[in-house]
Amino acid sequence: MSNIGLILEEKAADIGNFLVGRLLPFREKRNVGPFVFIDHMGPADLKDYQNLDVAPHPHIGLSTLTYLLEGSIFHRDSLGSAVEITPGAVNWMTAGKGVVHSERTPEYLRQTDKKLHGLQIWVALPKHLEQSEPTFQHVEASEIPVWQNGTTHFKLIAGKAFGKQSPVNVHSELYFLEIKSEEAVTLNIGENLYGEVAMYVLEGNVSLEGNDYGTKQLLVAKNSKLCQFSMSKNTKVYLFGGTPFDEEHFIYWNFVNSDKEIIEQAKENWQNQNHEAFPLVPGDEEEYVPLPINPFSKK
C-alpha cells in the first residue's frame, strides 16, 4: 500500500514584481503538523528598478519563518526589530496576540540587479500561546545544525529530528529539514521523524514506491514512520511536519487562530488601524497593507 497520501503541485500567486509558488494551504490539505502556510519565493531576477516592497501588515496566532536561498530582505517589525535576512539565516517572528512587520529590499540593493529566492512559512501556535506577547528571533546561518552522511548533506533549520535540535525557539513538536544529495542515494529516515510529514522537491528528482517526482511537487505522507525515498544526483528537498494540534486552526488573510471571534476582532482592529492592538513599525510608518478579501477563509 502506498505511503503517499497526497501529491500537490506548486500553485503560482502574484505578489507584485514576481510570482511565488504556494505550497500550503490547499483545499485537499490545510496543514501538515503545525505548518499552515508555505510560499516558495522565486527564484526571481529583479532589475535595478524592481524591488520587494511588502508594506507593514499584521499577524496573529502564528510564528513566521523566513529562509532565503538567494538574495536579501530587510525585516522591520512593531517590536523594533530591524535586521537584514541573508541566505541560510532564519527569521523567526512569533505574532501571539498581534505584531506588524514589513519586508523590503535593503537600501543598498535598490538600484542594482538582484536575485530573490527562498521560503516563507507560517506555523500555528498552540492554543495556550495564541494570545501571548509577540517575540522575534534572528538565527545566523552558522548556528543552524548541519551534518553529512556520505555524500548526503542535512540541515535542521527548525525543530527537533535525528537526535538534534535547531536553536530556533519553536513552540511545538515540529521539524523543518533540508536534505541535499551530491550523488544518487536511497534514504530510510522514518525512525527520525514523527507526526505528519511532507516533502517539497526544490531541485532534482525523487523516486519512491516506483514513481518519479520532480521539482515544484509537494508529497504528503500517510505515515511519517514509513518515510523512505531515493534522490537522484544533485537533488535538494525540504521535509517539514510534526505533531498536529487537536483543535482546528482557521486562517483569514494573515490571521491564524483556533477562535474565529479573535480573528474577527483582529480584522476590525486592523481595518480601523487600532495602534494599541497593532503598533506601528518604527522606521516604516508611512504605509500599510489594507485588509483584503481573503482567499483562504474557512467559514
Rank of each mutant, 00 (worst) to 15 (best):
N257C: 06
V206K: 04
E133Q: 14
I179G: 02
T243Q: 15
Q265R: 11
K225L: 14
T152Y: 00
Y238R: 03
L239G: 07
N223Q: 04
E191N: 11
V146A: 11
E248K: 14
S258M: 03
H128N: 13
D212G: 09
E182H: 11
I179Y: 00
T215I: 14
G242W: 01
M231W: 02
Q137K: 11
G150I: 08
Q228K: 14
N211H: 14
V256P: 01
Q265H: 12
N257G: 05
A221I: 05
P145W: 08
T151A: 08
E140A: 06
I179D: 01
S207V: 14
W147F: 05
K236N: 07
G163A: 10
V201I: 15
Y238V: 10
L174N: 06
G163E: 13
V206R: 04
S224T: 10
K180E: 10
T243W: 07
G150M: 09
V197T: 09
L129A: 13
A184L: 09
V170R: 02
G163N: 06
S224R: 02
N192T: 13
E178F: 08
P145D: 08
E173V: 10
F162V: 10
V185F: 04
E140K: 05
K155R: 13
F245H: 04
E173P: 03
A198W: 12
K155D: 00
K216F: 13
T151C: 06
H249K: 14
L156S: 02
L129Q: 13
F255Y: 09
E178H: 08
K164E: 11
F162M: 12
A158I: 02
K222H: 01
F240Q: 01
F136G: 09
K233M: 07
V170N: 01
S132F: 11
E143A: 15
M199E: 03
D259K: 03
T243L: 12
E173F: 04
K160Y: 06
T151N: 10
Y200A: 02
T243C: 10
A161M: 11
L239D: 03
N169G: 09
N192W: 14
K155M: 05
N192E: 15
F229T: 12
V256H: 04
V146C: 11
M199R: 07
